[in-house]
């Protein structure tokens, strides 16, 4: 007897981030760095040259004390589903969209470091390795064997912890299933979020929690006007958060960096 482990329909993995729950604790950023072997910063690294596959931005309503209000917005690769800007500019085909999962993948082995993709990404979610990865002596023993460290001169970004997807698929195949069950594959940031602010799942599955939340009220996507159809959705009950999300706050933040 054989089991059919071939996928019936392509998935569209995505996530919904509840901005009203995010405390800006940074657990997602640390879990991501640990999972994906993102090295600690070099002494001269800055906000602009550091590598954070997911970065939590603090946004403001623009008012002054005591009317000021703040929200924390985790921004990772938005996994654009339409005319993915980084894919179209890469001369090396080092970026591709997996039709089976919808995940925008990055192959650092192919990357030449031209950084066209960084210029094209409207979300500033791509990062260049300005230095070779260095961990303090002995700490390389703590690296995740599922992910290879990248070297100086290549671009990297969030891939929804593809290593976890492969591991989950292997487990599913061993159990005779075509794909992991909901919850069997979750990126590190989702698992680490202490407030459960991030819901991850297959947006193509109408019954998934992520798809339900994405359809719900108060949902928006960053820079919707660009029409890149990101697969990362955000939720907030605060109107000013929706407004700021349509501005390029990532770029503004990076341009504020001195030096």
């Amino acid at each position: 007897m054989t089991m059919d482990t071939k996928r019936k329909r392509p998935a569209r993995y995505g996530m919904v981030i509840d901005v009203d729950r995010c405390t800006g604790c940074g657990a997602c950023m640390i879990a991501c760095a640990v999972e994906n072997n993102v090295p600690p910063a070099q002494p001269e690294a800055t906000d602009r040259t550091g590598i954070t596959w997911v970065r939590v931005y603090q946004i403001h309503n623009g008012a002054s004390f005591p009317e000021n209000r703040t929200a924390f917005v985790p921004v990772m690769c938005q996994q654009c589903g339409h005319q993915t800007p980084c894919v179209s500019v890469c001369p090396q085909q080092a970026v591709d969209v997996d039709r089976e999962t919808g995940i925008v993948g990055q192959m650092p082995q192919r990357c030449l470091g031209c950084r066209y993709c960084m210029a094209a990404c409207p979300y500033h979610a791509r990062y260049f390795n300005w230095w070779d990865p260095v961990w303090p002596k002995g700490m390389e023993r703590t690296l995740n064997p599922a992910v290879a460290p990248r070297m100086r001169g290549v671009v990297e970004k969030c891939n929804f912890c593809q290593g976890r997807l492969h591991a989950a698929r292997e487990r599913a195949a061993a159990a005779g299933r075509a794909e992991p069950k909901p919850g069997e594959y979750v990126p590190a940031c989702v698992e680490a979020c202490p407030t459960a602010a991030i819901t991850f799942g297959d947006l193509a599955d109408e019954n998934s929690a992520a798809a339900e939340q994405a359809r719900g009220g108060n949902t928006f996507r960053l820079l919707q006007k660009l029409g890149t159809e990101p697969k990362v959705y955000y939720r907030s009950s605060r109107p000013w958060v929706h407004q700021v999300a349509q501005q390029d706050f990532g770029r503004r933040k990076k341009e504020e960096i001195r030096g």
Binding site: G26, I30, P40, A45, G50
Partner: peptide, 15 residues
């Protein structure tokens, strides 16, 4: 602190 805490301090200014 772990050196990767640079992500929330030095590399993002989150804290």
């Amino acid at each position: 602190l772990s050196p990767v805490m640079s992500k929330v301090y030095q590399e993002s200014g989150l804290r």
